[in-house]
Nucleic acid binder design. Structure first.
Lengths: 203, 203
DNA sequence: TGTACATCAGTGAACGCGCGTTCACTGATGTAC
DNA sequence: TGTACATCAGTGAACGCGCGTTCACTGATGTAC
């Protein structure tokens, strides 16, 4: 039986709950995310979510899955397009930082230690995201735009953008920072220093 | 009146509570840190902590203060000693990563967004830690071991080690990682790539 | 088209839980004389 | 040295709270005939 997209009682409570959950996450963080609060936001009784999620953990798992998928898609999109391999790599890094800034709660969620290994799908998407990076680094190596070990270089690149992202979100940088342009220029600065490091003794 | 260091009722409940709190933090994370649990660990009734901390927030604030102080000390220690300025800078980076790995709960605590600006003392210590890094970068610039803008270079360096640290602690790297040696060699790899990036067109 | 029925999304009361915090207390430690 | 007193760290009962989860229910939607 095909169910009309808007048509059953609430319509699409599941989606509404996830949306509300992301909202709570953005405003108050994971710690304050409760099923009851999410239900409240969705305008529904506190027991209603149990028709869509087995328990609270299932809701959180769904959030994590969705988050990793979004991240992997962002990186993939940035990886395509014109330019040198090194430029593409730089774009991937920029996309990583942008994703974090535009989706702070989601980004933080993905790296909460207590959620690690909670969901196999997330693991897959995480791998996919890393694969995009690794691929781009290998392309640089193949085209002689970088030299070294692909794993070490990937790790350095990842560390740098991940560090920048988390410092921007949660660190002291937050204070000294107008959002948008400034973080973009920081990202460019950082990735260009990094690019030089990828190609010792000028290419 | 001088109070003997071990001598009043419990002895030094305040210290014991902080220790217990760090223990809980390491085992279960900030989310599960409750005054009652801390009191339990310290072997004391749940109301006892109120003689040493005004409320739960005060306990957490004390933890954050202690954490930042420790970090600043670690970095200062690493900054002194022999070697080129670039080597010193590398050592600071290594110390940063080591601190995170050896004190995971503390390190995470320092960057919890909801605790930001909670304690002025922590802000000072945080500044002190950053000052160590900035100083080292400036030394590199002065001795022509690096070229560029000190702020951008500091930020890149910080981002890189911070990213590596958080990926090691909370990220996918955790799985593929034997502790100790491997993280050290990763840190060395990462900082050496970075060092090259600091000195474009080989010096 | 109508009617009887099945399905199932959402409701609201209820449960037990651990929490932060308050309070009157107890009893050990230190002080004045 | 002894005695009366003040201080104050720690106790245990009690409070109100929001939480996750369960349950019997209601009522709208879809289905069979």
């Amino acid at each position: 039986v095909a169910r009309p997209s808007d048509g059953y009682h609430h319509g699409d409570l599941r989606r509404a709950l996830l949306q509300a959950a992301f909202q709570v996450l953005d405003e108050s963080g994971l710690d304050r995310l409760s099923l009851r609060e999410v239900a409240r936001r969705a305008g529904v009784s506190h027991a209603a979510p149990y028709h869509h999620f087995a328990d609270k953990a299932a809701l959180v798992t769904a959030l994590v899955d969705a988050g990793f998928e979004q991240l992997a898609e962002s990186l993939s999109a940035a990886a395509s397009g014109p330019g040198t391999n090194l430029e593409r790599l730089g774009r991937i890094g920029g996309a990583y930082v942008s994703f974090a800034i535009e989706n702070p709660a989601t980004f933080r969620l993905l790296f909460r230690p207590e959620l690690r290994g909670t969901t196999p799908a997330a693991g897959d998407s995480g791998q996919a995201a890393y694969a995009v990076l690794l691929e781009a680094v290998r392309a640089c190596l193949a085209s002689r735009e970088a030299v070294g070990d692909s794993r070490a270089l990937s790790l350095t690149a990842w560390s740098t953008v991940h560090g920048l992202a988390t410092l921007l979100l949660d660190g002291p940088l937050h204070d000294h920072l107008a959002p948008g342009e400034l973080s973009d220029s920081l990202a460019r600065n950082v990735t260009s220093v990094l690019a030089v490091g990828f190609m010792p003794r000028g290419g």
